[in-house]
Design a binder for these strands. Sequence first.
DNA 1: GAGTGGTCTAGACCACAAT
DNA 2: TTGTGGTCTAGACCACTCC
Lengths: 235, 235
Amino acid sequence: MDAEPLHRRIARDIERRIASGDWAPGFRIPTEAELTVEYGCARMTVSRAVSELAARGLVVRRRKVGTVVAHPPVHSSALVAIPDIQAEVQARGLAYSHRLMGRIVRPASADEAELGARVIELETLHLADGLPFAMEHRLISLTATPEAEAADFSAEPAGGWLLARAPWTEAEHRISAVGADRQTAEALGLEAGATCLRLERRTWRDGQGVTRVWQMFPGAAYDLVARFSPRKDQG
Amino acid sequence: MDAEPLHRRIARDIERRIASGDWAPGFRIPTEAELTVEYGCARMTVSRAVSELAARGLVVRRRKVGTVVAHPPVHSSALVAIPDIQAEVQARGLAYSHRLMGRIVRPASADEAELGARVIELETLHLADGLPFAMEHRLISLTATPEAEAADFSAEPAGGWLLARAPWTEAEHRISAVGADRQTAEALGLEAGATCLRLERRTWRDGQGVTRVWQMFPGAAYDLVARFSPRKDQG
DNA sequence: GAGTGGTCTAGACCACAAT
DNA sequence: TTGTGGTCTAGACCACTCC
């Protein structure tokens, strides 16, 4: 028998006709009433199918007008994998290790107000098979996670430690290309000014800043990849 | 009155209790039957609300077991805006223009087999207020879009032209940091080797390669930003 | 066996927008 | 006014999986 629910079969049927170009962008697809007849099912079932496609951005529904095939998306966004460094290193079959290069506790600057009054500042070198992989500079809010002050970040990288204790609800990532500053170049074994991919991440939990981290990767050795189909990730 | 549908109100209520930490990861939320009583509505309405949260990855549903709050995601992915250059320039309030620097038609190399037998190779400089903004290097499949051979890409940038004629169904993006090659440096007015953000995009339509493009941005002037809440972009 | 979610029905009323 | 989707009901049967 059909293991596949009817609403999904309907959705796939429509999706196929759109992907094949049979129903081009702007085409008005059959109404719910018509689909109800075509599939011999209740209106709610076709409604569910078409609503799912609308949620994914494949079609646009408007009362009275009907449901039309959406125009293809602009090259607007992509789901880019932002890997955890330890996982990334291990995924490459290399041995992960890290070295805490610096740790101070200090008041937050005006620019860091989201993190509260006091922060821990960490500098960590991530290594793959003993070779420098990435340099990390991190601020941790002692307002969001007071217990960070007593944590031993030379034993456990701060990223994993924080994830276990202070899951975030919002994050901002920023990706850029920069030349390595003197300290980073030295730690990574590069020449000063060498090309690096810079990944900045800021996270919040319920509006309270949790952490802010910059990671520098040697440009030649690292990139970010996003493979996807459009409209599958629509939100 | 309530403009908000009941199923959404239910979903938001649950989401709020999860975000507040009240219902922690692993917590088993009320069954559909219990929610039906709590909200005094039909089971299908609560089912719709909870299913929506499940689709977004906030909760995990299993028959007989019930619905439990999902564990927070690893720092695994982020929706990064991959802007169209023209739109990006105009969004900054600058005048967009472009200059076609090179165009040849040639056989595809073995490495470019996905694009078919013959390709157009384009080199385009994008300008903002007359100043170099990005250098673009592009291959267009003449199998996917034969009419590209006759198109005038000095009048219309290839990106927009393609989007209108050959919408893609799959894409891969790759972001890296590189030093500018001689030609790029010259076009962008940089020193050779200057830090650049390199964005590579490959697109397919139904398995047939459509285009492959590399864009180089001066590192200091450009970055990619992703702001998001976790689990909102689940697919 | 029994509890839970997954799906589906055959209706109903309402909201919106084009006419 | 009318056609269309948006939501909701009060049931029903089934599938899965823990006990």
